[in-house]
Design a protein around this nucleic acid. Structure first.
Lengths: 124, 124
DNA sequence: TATTGTTATACTCTATAACTATA
DNA sequence: TATAGTTATAGAGTATAACAATA
């Protein structure tokens, strides 16, 4: 809980540097290059209603970071792909998000590895 | 980062059970009974502008969960205190927030203790 | 002069309900 | 009949700027 609450301000301030919202960052993070993502999958991952995804993608598409394409398998579905600009931002975003906090230095290298391993096991 | 993003949906859905927003939950969590909190301190903890706190507290006060009181030390400052109803909700909220996720069972008791210890050291 | 909190404004996020196109 | 996405609507979060009261 403390970790979660302490991170509440981090994503918003990082997002602001790119003139994005936290939710928009989350969408960009979800779209791995080479794997088009159905909009419904985004709604599931963000735990939000499908109608929100419409607005989020509207704004990302207007900024030229994402494109909607009809799915060949099911014509009701639209899949999302990053543009070149979107991929660039996503890369920088992930670099920044994964850069460890200063306080990680309080742990030894071995303890850091252990922490990552334990978190990985309860998250997968 | 994964932990942070994976928790994105948790607080909103828990908050919804109490008909609160995530930000309102965060405010209630900040106000420990017996320690009145200046509104500016809330803005700092939430990493948001002071004007947002006005609106958040307006709604919490309208629901009878929080009260504003002028600070005796500095008459510009207003401090926040929980009402009896606010304390009840805060207690239940914290119980629910601190209940461990199902996947914690994947770790042994010793590993769980270790994880908590490591997180504690990088958060304090 | 600087700071605390408020107000006014604008934009984004969010859910609900009704709708269209497709399955 | 059910599902994916859109639209319309309403309420809440957020930042900026201007303001009042106080320091």
């Amino acid at each position: 809980m403390q970790l979660s609450l302490s991170q509440r301000g981090n994503l918003p301030s990082l997002a602001a540097e790119f003139e994005l919202s936290p939710a928009q960052c989350h969408v960009l993070h979800l779209i791995e290059p080479g794997r088009p993502v159905p909009m419904g999958e985004v709604a599931g991952a963000l735990s939000c209603d499908a109608s929100n995804v419409t607005g989020l993608v509207d704004r990302l598409e207007a900024r030229g970071l994402v494109v909607r394409q009809p799915s060949p398998a099911d014509r009701r579905v639209k899949v999302l792909t990053l543009t070149a600009a979107g991929r660039r931002i996503r890369t920088v975003l992930i670099e920044r998000l994964t850069s460890p906090p200063d306080t990680l230095g309080r742990l030894s290298t071995q303890e850091q590895r252990l922490l990552v391993e334990l978190l990985r096991r309860i998250l997968e």
